[in-house]
């Protein structure tokens, strides 16, 4: 039982980790938690569903199409709305992302309605692999692999590419980045594109487990945000670990203590973390020298 709960925890933790990563990538450049993250992923997942269901495209085409859409959506939102804000403070930017959230939720409900669709996925949630005393579905394993693959790509991107290093620089000091020839605006667009992309992957891996409707990402978004706070909003590795920790704790709690209060655990953890280690479990606490 214990092992089985750990396996399930890791599977759902992968989704949380992806959402957390998506949030942190934007947070690190703009210092804004993007509350539209979930809805952006939801819309992208619906695009994949539409390509599959209404246009009869193959899964690969639909998946790629949805990811391309996610990138465009991220760039569009950043370029058309956020960049227009004049000397914004963090609060007004958060409000803008809440506005996106409502806009996208409305658009999703209007276009696809509130009824629950099942999202056909080539990897099955019913075929299982035996891992000793526990079992994992093929989908569980695919989700984990997709998450780990994306994390590896991200790590390489930030360590070795010119753009990745420029993005890291922009996140640490925007003024210094600009005067060294880095186009900070373009970096900002790129963070939105990347974040939207990662969110869309999370959405499409999640949809086959649950059902597809406009509320798809509500819960995962909050959990992903919780995971990011748990691990530290400023660290990519930490936030991903936070996702797994949260997934495991939540599943264990659901298995041993109470299924009804499973979701509440996430927020109890946030409160505890904020009390004892406000910058997150894995974030180094940097104090700016004055």
């Amino acid at each position: 039982m214990f092992l089985q709960l750990i396996v399930s925890g890791i599977a759902i933790g992968s989704i949380y980790a992806l959402v957390a990563l998506a949030m942190v990538i934007i947070y690190k450049t703009s210092e804004v938690p993007n509350f539209a993250q979930g809805e952006m992923a939801m819309i992208s997942t619906f695009i994949a569903f539409m390509l599959l269901d209404s246009y009869g495209q193959s899964f690969i085409v639909s998946f790629m199409g949805a990811l391309a859409f996610a990138i465009l959506l991220g760039v569009f939102l950043e370029f058309t709305f956020l960049r227009r804000a004049k000397d914004p403070n963090v609060l007004s930017l958060i409000l803008i992302t809440l506005g996106f959230e409502m806009m996208l939720y409305g658009a999703g409900s209007w276009k696809w309605g509130a009824e629950q669709q099942s999202f056909p996925f080539p990897v099955s949630d019913y075929d299982i692999v035996n891992l000793g005393p526990a079992v994992a579905s093929h989908l569980n394993i695919a989700t984990l692999l997709a998450a780990l693959f994306l994390m590896l790509i991200l790590a390489l991107f930030f360590k070795y590419t010119k753009v990745g290093i420029a993005m890291k620089a922009t996140q640490q000091n925007m003024v210094a980045a600009r005067i060294n020839g880095i186009r900070a605006n373009r970096i900002l667009s790129l963070t939105w594109a990347m974040s939207s992309f990662i969110g869309a992957v999370a959405g499409m891996m999640l949809a086959p487990i649950t059902t597809l409707d406009p509320n798809l990402m509500m819960d995962p978004l909050l959990k992903g945000f919780a995971a990011a706070v748990l691990g530290g909003m400023t660290t990519l590795v930490g936030s991903a670990l936070g996702g797994y920790i949260l997934g495991i704790i939540e599943t264990l709690f659901g298995g041993y203590v109470s299924l009804q209060f499973k979701s509440v655990v996430a927020f109890m953890i946030i409160v505890l973390v904020l009390c004892f280690k406000p910058s997150g479990l894995f974030a180094k606490h940097y104090v700016r020298r004055v």
Partner: peptide, 15 residues
Amino acid sequence: ELFSRMTTMENLMLG
């Protein structure tokens, strides 16, 4: 205005 969570080498490379 430095990239304070990077090394000296990395800061200069960003130059």
